[in-house]
């Protein structure tokens, strides 16, 4: 039975496609890669995705990541040229109206907070930066760096905001994941204890819809599921003064042939997708009798999605089961997952 149906293959980027991001409305998405361009894709009258706009003048080196703000008005791009560009359509066309500078080295990832008032970036310079956006009608947006977080000891690969709260997570070449939150007393950003379990680079992370669980994927070919425990949890897991602790409750090993470069936990369906260096994309589903403290996940579909490494997976934010994948082979593909029913 066909569980993953290919809806469309999109070409246009020259060389490797590194990342892509769905607009929150699901009516468009942006993609980026080593050709230093951002492509914004929309659906035409025949229900086919086409590149509506190509943004070429924002960066001088590879664009590693793109992210839409939750309001859908802003698009941020992170580049090896050490800058982050913020694009908007206030003039009617996409324009780069802010360039965030400060990182000493390649910027690897960018992400917007749920509230939209904050942006986080991370770099090979081992730091995570948090930026606040100050916008007022008829005035230019201003971006202020409010925190430089130096918890990691190596290249930081990915930053990801919590789906409801102003909690930030980051993943690094130092094999750990870190979380950050604002101290309610003095508004200073503080770091929680590093989450250690992976044995090599953590490439990507994704929260589930509740924000109480996190999935991570790594160069060590595994995927791990982390569960948040608060004070007085039923299992008696000790919590630090700072409140909660994250524990690795599940390791998916033996499924991936090479490095796992990306992971996305669908907020609508709970399905977990991974992008792997063996060119394949896999979808995992939590077992119906899964114990939350020792969850079990089943591989429900594996597709030989691309002819080279898969770099990115992203579930559609509105339509359940629609998945975007992007690869070193220069292609972006749109798939539809079909459940047994």
């Amino acid at each position: 039975m066909e569980k993953m149906k290919l809806l469309q293959t999109l070409t246009g980027h020259m060389g490797r496609v590194w990342s892509a991001s769905w607009h929150p409305s699901g009516t468009m998405f942006a993609s980026c890669g080593e050709d230093k361009t951002i492509r914004v894709w929309i659906k035409n009258d025949e229900d086919r995705w086409i590149a509506q706009t190509v943004l070429t003048d924002g960066h001088t080196r590879t664009i590693r990541d793109v992210a839409w703000s939750c309001c859908g008005h802003y698009l941020a791009s992170a580049s090896f040229d050490t800058t982050v560009a913020v694009w908007d359509k206030k003039s009617g066309e996409f324009e780069c109206n802010a360039t965030l500078e400060g990182h000493d080295n390649e910027v690897k990832s960018v992400t917007w907070s749920r509230s939209g008032g904050m942006l986080a970036t991370c770099s090979r310079d081992k730091s995570v930066w948090i930026w606040e956006i100050h916008s007022a009608p008829d005035q230019e947006d201003e971006y202020e760096c409010v925190a430089v977080l130096n918890g990691h000891t190596q290249d930081v690969k990915k930053v990801c905001w919590h789906p409801h709260e102003d909690i930030l997570a980051s993943a690094s070449y130092d094999n750990t994941i870190r979380m950050y939150r604002q101290d309610t007393a003095d508004n200073e950003w503080e770091m929680l204890e590093p989450m250690e379990s992976h044995t090599s680079t953590v490439w990507s992370i994704s929260f589930d819809g509740t924000g109480k669980r996190l999935a991570s994927c790594s160069e060590d070919k595994t995927v791990k599921i982390w569960q948040q425990y608060g004070p007085d949890n039923a299992l008696g897991i000790p919590c630090p003064e700072k409140g909660t602790v994250w524990k690795c409750v599940c390791t998916l090993a033996g499924f991936h042939g090479r490095s796992v470069y990306d992971i996305d936990w669908c907020k609508r369906t709970g399905l977990l997708a991974t992008a792997c260096g063996d060119d394949s994309v896999r979808v995992f589903k939590e077992a119906s009798d899964s114990d939350p403290n020792e969850p079990t996940f089943e591989l429900v579909v594996k597709i030989e999605a691309h002819s080279q490494d898969a770099n990115k997976v992203a579930w559609h934010p509105v339509t359940p089961g629609v998945l975007l994948t992007a690869s070193d082979d220069g292609e972006i593909k749109i798939w539809q997952y079909q459940d047994e029913e």
């Binding site: 080593e34 590879t62 590693r64 090896f80 390649e106 690969k157 070449y173 160069e219 260096g277 490494d309």
Partner: peptide
């Protein structure tokens, strides 16, 4: 070995 395996860092080096 870890540096040589990291395709992202290799890509950055090639630029």
């Amino acid at each position: 070995n870890k540096q040589l395996t990291d395709k992202e860092r290799v890509a950055a080096a090639l630029e």
